[in-house]
Every structure is written in structure tokens, then in C-alpha cells.
């Protein structure tokens, strides 16, 4: 029992279960899944689908944070990716064709790859602090996205492209298949090869890992490129959902949510040991939070207050200091009981 209690994912998992429980008490049928037109429907499926962009970004963020870095520019990358894809479709001769949609995806992801490489060069080659290096693209990025859309909200109609966000395959939402598929692939590659260990080595001590032959520069560069690419994919799902490229609001604050998800999942911002499963739980907590707000009838305006309480509670429960304090309290009580 104590082993479960001490596991790093204990408190995050409890938080997620508590949220789901609160929703079920209010609406007992909320967790039911029904089949309509061969698709699965229900709140759990909604959570899976709504969490996909955040999960994609958070997976990239976890790897970046593992190397002692941080990427503030993901929100801007999301906006740029959507802007590029939809502008490409809007300006093509045949917006509705599948070929155009594929072209849009390739162009957008290619650009995001370059944006990630820009961050990677600044951090890995110039040795600039990650928070400053990515602040640059975070500031300029939305401006660039506005430049691409010319300050307008570009709306297009392209059935193949919107499938990315709202389509279904085998009864499951395409967005969720992409996001959770990427999650599984990254988790497999990182944990079944030495890659994860090397990333942790770079995060724990960059100098020592370099001296022991780890190509830390290449690794750090690669995680920023991957983070850019995954943010771009998230941007495509966002864009496919609304079919409108809103440079100001697409992916707004997603960097904060993603960092939050990573931290809730038990990965320290100080780098080193990372936990992808924890990140997934963090993402699910944040997505469930918005569902809980609507189900519990809390005004959506105070969602952020709700979020603050969850963040403060989870980070404090994970803090070793508080645990030590609680531990000594329990110890003292036990002595008192023995004494009595």
C-alpha cells in the first residue's frame, strides 16, 4: 500500500479519478459510450479527441524538458501551421481535392520542422538558454502567422483536410488515433532503445554526458525539431477542427497547458528523468477539467481558478518538503498514541 502511495503517479492519478468521479456523481451516465452510425460517441471519446492536440504538444515538450530545456514557442508554431495549411488550400486551384490537402499538410509540417530547427540551433549550437531562445519565436511567431493570413481569419472548405480533426476510422476519431499513435511510437522508441536514457543523461549532466561520448548537441537539436513537428501536427488538427486559421487564438496558451501537463505528470522542469505516461495523465487531467467545468455547472469564466487549485494541490502534494512535514506529523501522532 505504501508503495502505491509513494509512486510518482499516485497523486496525478487520484486527481484524474476525483475529477471523473465528480462528473459521474453529477451526471451518472456521463461515462457511458454509445454507438451511433458506426462511430463511438460519449464523453470519454470526447475527452480522447479533445486532448489530441495537447497530447501531441506535450509529448514533444516532455522530451525537451528532459534535456533541461523548455519550448515556449509551441503555441506560435500551432498558429503558423494552421495558417500555412489553410492559406495553401485557399490559394490552390482545387481546394476540395485530396491532393491539395496532402500538399497543405506537407508544406505546413515542413515549415514547422524549420521552426523547430531554428529553436534547436539557438539552444544546441549557440548555447542560448532555452527559455530565452524559444521566447523569440513565441513573440514573433503569431506575428508571422498574421503575416501569412494577412490578418484575416482564413476559412476554407476541404472535406479531406477536415477529416484530420472530425473524421472517424474504425469508430474512433482520427485526431485521437494520430495523437495516441504518435504517443505510443515515441514512447516505444524512447524506452525500447537507449534514446530515452541518453536524453535523461543530457538533462542530468550535459557536460558529463558529453565527456562520456553522448552526442548531446545532436540530441538537444533533435528534440526541438521533434517538438516543432509535433506542434505543427497539433496545429493541423486545430485547423481541421474549425477550418478557420485564426492566427491570434489558435493554440493560445497551449504552451502553458503542455508544460503544466508535463509537470503534473511528474517530470521535473530541472530536466533528467521524464515520464511520458505521466504526461498523458496530465493531459487527460487538463482536458477533463474543462469537461468537469461544464458538467458541474461552474461558470467557464472561472476555469482558470479551478485549474490553479488543481495545479497548486498537485505540485504541493508532490513536493518532498510537504511530504516530509506530513510524514513527521503522522509519526508524532503515532508516538502520542503509543504513549497514551
Amino acid at each position: 500500500m505504501t508503495r502505491i502511495y509513494k509512486h510518482r503517479l499516485f497523486w496525478p492519478a487520484i486527481a484524474l479519478l476525483a475529477l471523473l468521479l465528480a462528473c459521474t456523481i453529477k451526471r451518472p451516465d456521463i461515462l457511458g459510450i454509445s454507438v451511433l452510425d458506426g462511430h463511438l460517441f460519449g464523453a470519454p471519446i470526447d475527452i480522447l479527441r479533445n486532448s489530441s492536440p495537447l497530447l501531441l504538444v506535450a509529448v514533444g515538450m516532455t522530451l525537451v524538458i528532459a534535456t533541461r530545456g523548455i519550448d515556449l514557442s509551441v503555441g506560435a508554431t500551432v498558429a503558423i501551421s494552421g495558417a500555412v495549411a489553410l492559406t495553401f488550400i485557399a490559394s490552390s486551384a482545387n481546394p476540395g481535392s485530396a491532393g491539395t490537402a496532402v500538399g497543405a499538410v506537407i508544406v505546413a509540417l515542413g515549415l514547422c520542422l524549420i521552426l523547430g530547427a531554428f529553436n534547436g540551433v539557438l539552444v544546441a549550437n549557440f548555447g542560448i538558454q532555452p527559455i530565452v531562445a524559444t521566447l523569440i519565436l513565441m513573440t514573433a511567431g503569431r506575428g508571422v502567422a498574421m503575416l501569412i493570413t494577412n490578418g484575416q481569419i482564413t476559412t476554407v472548405n476541404s472535406a479531406p483536410f477536415s477529416k484530420l480533426a472530425s473524421g472517424y476510422v474504425l469508430g474512433l476519431p482520427v485526431a485521437a488515433i494520430i495523437a495516441y499513435g504518435v504517443f505510443a511510437v515515441v514512447a516505444l522508441v524512447v524506452r525500447r532503445t537507449a534514446l530515452g536514457m541518453l536524453l535523461e543523461a543530457v538533462g542530468i549532466n550535459p557536460e558529463a554526458s558529453r565527456l562520456s561520448g553522448v552526442k548531446s548537441r545532436t540530441l538537444v537539436f533533435t528534440v526541438y525539431v521533434l517538438c516543432g513537428l509535433l506542434s505543427g501536427l497539433a496545429g493541423l488538427i486545430f485547423a481541421g477542427n474549425t477550418m478557420a486559421a485564426d492566427a491570434n487564438n489558435a493554440g493560445l496558451f497551449i504552451e502553458l497547458d503542455a508544460i503544466l501537463a508535463v509537470v503534473i505528470g511528474g517530470t521535473s522542469l530541472a530536466g533528467g528523468k521524464f515520464n511520458l505516461a505521466g504526461t498523458m495523465i496530465g493531459v487527460l487531467i487538463i482536458t477533463t477539467l474543462s469537461l468537469a467545468v461544464t458538467v458541474l455547472g461552474v461558470s467557464p469564466l472561472v476555469t482558470s481558478l479551478f485549474k490553479a487549485i488543481v495545479v497548486i494541490a498537485v505540485t504541493l502534494m508532490m513536493s518532498t518538503r510537504l511530504r516530509a512535514m506530513l510524514g513527521s506529523l503522522r509519526e508524532r501522532r503515532r508516538y502520542q498514541e503509543v504513549g497514551a
Binding site: 527559455i131 508544460i259 509537470v263 505540485t315 518538503r321
Partner: peptide
């Protein structure tokens, strides 16, 4: 006192 990172 609770060693939460400044960012968080």
C-alpha cells in the same frame, strides 16, 4: 519552501 519551480 515547497521547492516548486518558479515557472510552475
Amino acid at each position: 519552501y515547497f521547492e516548486v519551480q518558479p515557472f510552475v
